[in-house]
Design a protein around this nucleic acid. Structure first.
Lengths: 247, 247
DNA sequence: TATGTAAGGTTGTATTGACAACTTTACTGA
DNA sequence: TCAGTAAAGTTGTCAATACAACCTTACATA
């Protein structure tokens, strides 16, 4: 079985399409290996770097995962989780009936207004204020799903560093301990390649993108009391949202 | 100037980091070329394939664009557009004061219930119904930004194929002609690699991801009367959303 | 001065080859 | 039967080389 070297379509794209079809049709089974790079090179009469270019595409699409020394595996399709409605992340996960575990990557730390002013990615409403910052990793069914890097206005959330912030919805903590409820949010969505620490926490492959959501939460008159950068693996879980008109 | 070949960090990642720093610090200017692959290979004493591996990363991150025969260019950062609140896409763009142009890629076509039932990606609420389908490309400031592939319930939107659907908010058409207003939406967000036609319309590089949003719109009692797959280039524009609590 | 052509420069695709770092498998000895 | 070790197989990184397909630049001619 060979590829068409007279075709204007590059060989690596032809091979990628063959492999993609094989995955979709079940020829290659989820959680099992596809043939090794050397075997594919022989089968299709092309070089191993060209095979790697083809599998690079499918790794990036979230269909395959390479494991050094072991092989190249077919990944399962993503599950669906409502994450971007205003219910709060851990609450949404509990509703979705997936086993979820949240752990702190960084415990809450108090940042002075000077320190905050050096962090240019924070919204203007938070500049020049003291903030608590913390990072959490949430795994679903034992698999890393999302990382949250949160900033909370220190004045509003005094004492939060003494609370248990693992395996518990932040919105519940905010509600139970501070008697606040989010009333609105501004979010933006983009594709990014997270910094190394976040990529490692999410178990991302080299140059694998993540969905990045910047979320600024408003609590009635307390505008922008919480800011959160969320990094999601959309290849493992599909993140959804329900919204309604507010009029 | 050389890379550290004794480092455990691969050479291509070291070079990528050097180039990224150069872009962020302004050493390499937006809309101008970085040094050619051969020049970088000489400068850093590495092979051209290794240089290409490094620039591959930055192309994927949306920092660089390669143009065959011309060079490798630094791309400008994305602009911010509110797209995922419930205001409707073209209306949101008008509000953002970017020059926007919307053109049909496919005019509305009526799909029979049989044809609809073969399209597995549509939500269950739409199966077994006659639908109009159409595709639109929206460009902002002359640059392809998003593609919408829409499905509208035929009973509800009879006659829509006779309306002008270019350069006009669908939500306005729906409002003016059918006296309907979206009251809620279910959306999900993921990173995808669109099919060729969509990728071409968006001017995506090979294996460049797009943000994919599936949106099901509800019009009061008319649940799920419009379904839309939206593919966005988040490297050119940053897409945002404002949501509020509905209680 | 403008147009056309050729040469040079640039990125895109592909091959062959080598070695490192890892996992898996098979065999041997206690 | 179990543990340890070596060999084989797998992916990851790197390089040289070649040719194709494109763009840019410079020069010549009308």
């Amino acid at each position: 079985m060979n590829l068409n070297s007279q075709s204007p379509i590059p060989l690596y794209i032809q091979l990628a399409q063959r492999l993609r079809s094989g995955i979709e049709s079940g020829v290659y089974t989820v959680d099992e290996k596809i043939p090794s790079e050397n075997i594919l090179a022989d089968q299709f009469s092309i070089g191993r770097p060209t095979v790697r270019q083809a599998t690079d595409l499918l790794v990036r699409e979230g269909l395959l995962q390479r494991r050094r020394g072991s092989g190249t595996y077919v990944l399962p399709p993503p599950q669906k989780i409502d994450l971007f409605s205003l219910t709060g992340t851990t609450a949404a996960l509990q509703k979705s009936k997936v086993a979820s575990e949240t752990q702190l990557l960084c415990k809450p730390v108090l940042l002075s207004a000077d320190e905050v002013s050096t962090q240019s990615q924070l919204p203007a409403v938070l500049s020049q204020r003291e903030l608590y910052t913390l990072q959490r990793l949430t795994s679903l069914n034992g698999k890393a799903a999302l990382v949250e890097h949160m900033y909370l206005v220190a004045d509003v959330f005094q004492g939060i560093e003494n609370l248990d912030l693992e395996n518990q919805s932040l919105s519940r903590v905010v509600s139970d301990e501070f008697h606040l409820h989010a009333t609105a949010a501004d979010q933006s969505f983009d594709i990014c390649y997270p910094e190394l620490k976040v990529a490692q926490a999410l178990e991302l492959e080299s140059a694998q993108p993540a969905l990045h959501v910047s979320r600024l939460l408003h609590f009635g008159d307390l505008q922008g009391a919480v800011y959160c950068d969320i990094y999601c693996r959309t290849d493992r879980f599909q993140f959804s949202q329900n919204i309604t008109v507010t009029e």
